[in-house]
Design a protein around this nucleic acid. Sequence first.
RNA 1: GCUCGGGUGGCGAAAUGGCAGACGCAGGGGACUUAAAAUCCCCAGGGGGCAACCCCAUGCGGGUUCGAUUCCCGCCCCGAGCACCA
Length: 814
Amino acid sequence: MSTSEYSPSEVEAKWQARWIAERTNEPDLDRAARPYYNLMMFPYPSAEGLHVGNLFAFTGADVFGRFRRMQGWNVFEPIGFDAFGIHSENFALKVGMHPADLIPRNIENFTRQLRSMGGMYAWEHAFSTTDPEYYRWTQWVFLQLFKRGLAYQKNGAVNWCPGCKTVLSNEQVIAGECERCGSPVEQRVLEQWYFRITDYAARLLANLDDPAKMDWSASTTLAQKNWIGRSEGAELSFAAAGGDTVVTVYTTRPDTVFGATFLVLAPEHPLVDALTTDPHRAAVAAYRAQAAAKDLTARRIGDREKSGVATGGMAINPATGEPVPVWIADYVLMEYGTGAIMAVPGHDERDFAFATTHALPIVRVVAPVGDAEPAPLTEAFTDLGTARMVNSAQFDGMPADEAKQAITNWLEGEGAAEAKVQFRLYDWCISRQRYWGPPIPIIHCDDCGAVPVPEDQLPVLLPRIEDFRPDDSGVSPLARHAEWYFVDCPECGRKARRETDVSDTFLDSAWYFLRYPCTDMHDRPFDRARLDRWMPVARYIGGNEHAVLHLLYARFITMVLHDAGLVGTEEPFREFRAHGLIIKDGAKMSKSRGNVVNPDEYITKWGADTFRTYLMFLGPFQEGGDFRDAGISGPRRYLDKVWDMVTTAADPDCRDAEIRRDVMVKWNQTIKKVTEAVEGLHYNTAIAAQMELVGLLREQQCAEHGIVTDLVKMIAPFAPHFAEECWERLGHRSSVFDASWPTWDEALTVDDVLTVAVQVNGRTRATVTLARDASEDDARNAAMADASVARHLADREIRKVIWVPGRMLSFVVT
RNA sequence: GCUCGGGUGGCGAAAUGGCAGACGCAGGGGACUUAAAAUCCCCAGGGGGCAACCCCAUGCGGGUUCGAUUCCCGCCCCGAGCACCA
């Protein structure tokens, strides 16, 4: 290989081969002294290959892993493929291939691309979620939840996409349409499998605020909190007039109970029949039918007209003792709270709109302090802060936030209230009526019910069938295959049927990080002792599009396995950092916009190291950046300069020269700045700082061996092949990633002369050069001696002088 | 509608109370070359001035401060997420 010309293709091929041959990136999982689990979200291997957005995320995570490794950690950086699911299946249908043929091909292409970018991956631990050796244990995870009563079946109204012919989660429905194919979504009732994640709501929420367990990007933590949606309030009882039926409502504003002028039940509420009087029966039945026909999404986010009908029934307000009418309306959701509300139109916007539409009474019970004669309401008054109670009997005059507690206590004494914490989170539906996923390991027997497949009979292999296209029946294509469908019941031996739903891909990805360190084990999914060394994941880097679902499900599954004594840690990810998005032409990269950039051509043209450095340089990693290929020549020129500098530094005829003080200072400053910037994921400024150092070295014509050595180390996380080659040319035999990260001398990060700005009335008028330890008087004398400063101070009286040591001197004059 | 980000040169960006625009791209001028590429040097927010210098400038408007891109209040625009959660 030429020593004078930098040839990325040669350098990269050489080091990629050597890393594999020497197992450079395969830590000893059982004996690592300082284990550091560096995880990135594994990709879905699409037919299009990795795009620049993927590469940006993976490179950013890899830079951090390499940095930690040079700081002396034993870094485990695995990679794999999340290859089950509707994406793969729909694409296979579209191109007329079988996913079992398509996916290996895609994985091969992804593997090639991931190798070419030079990630520090422990390839010996790679897997695909579609490997039977993996999904065997995904099924096992299902059984652990089943055993603990956390997996159950229920009939539920679900979103049905007639295009994809499958159930969609609420978050896959965008404005009433399928997020994937755009078909209008319908409502269907199906029996499905759910995980009881709501049992864990309080713990999942509490841990978010426990710094001993979690240190996550603030935006991600916040998204999870909002998703779990804890609220505090009370359940209040309204006795139906003239009967023993009691309607229980949930409210977060028990202070407003005196203003509750009617009740609203969800149309599906079980008490509707009992409360409806004969004259209203027909209207109620019609309204319920209409609500049932609406798909869930239209009902959730459709027009905001507050429709509803009266039942004719009345209930007694427990605070006022007055009868109030009971209505039904589809703005009240059966899934949340008790499926019934007390409507307080004076202090809730939705109730106000409803009362206005249906001419129901509005009573004000909270008013701002200072409103002597509370004005009639023209809109709901929802402020709580400084408000006080009115029209509320013995509570009048009390601050509203105090009244919340006081009224709950009072009604509790009357047996009509109970304080209650409510969560917005709902149970996780894991059923998919599709083909391309792990079959749910359950056998349905007419005598024994839902029987788990014995663990020693796992995996329940997904059979290769050619007619995997879903139909309109709402049943998985697997049901059409009798030889697979009918089995003997594991308990009684009689003829039984397999569960034909497959599980959600989010289940595959809810535990994959537990499998990575244990892929060599074939008799168990993972090993407690080995996981105790590596878990929790030290740092997880991924996109904020998974802030809620994936990250919450992974936390939930880990928590369940922890409770079962199978995993030592309750929280899987010690640190999580969300990366930004790569924008092109002002928009997120996507196929539909036609602005997707294929990284291959850039790697071929510029080299992976240049491309990596460019991606990390174009903007702050946690915010993303704007991709434009014009900028890539900068990082390449930078590497070329370093290459030349290494050539000089490696020359034995090039004697180490005395290092000038300012170079010494810049060297130490750069190490400090780069170290701190990489630590904070400010990769763009870390690279900028290195460039500054290179600029100064070139200006001084200095290629001192020690400085160049440190520079190569600092480049290494960004341009790993390049750095290995430079390292070798500097005379080293082992990997640069086994060298230690450079350190700096704090005393040498400050120059012995400083430039200090001089301001007069807040405007900079001059700069003066001072010794590092100059006093205020020194600065003042130097400043007064400056002609410009003197002019601005002439004929003025100095009222005040502010001295910021080493930075600036400010005169305040008349 | 609510929540969270963000708005700085021609462009990507930096600076989180102290010289706004580091670093890089694109641009202009020069050197080298028969020429070009590559490389190197210089210039480069806007305006005024021969110049020393001066004024304006970080989405808009106010405020705090000796000093504000940074902190506070109000508004506008862009992006992302959530969506009748009682």
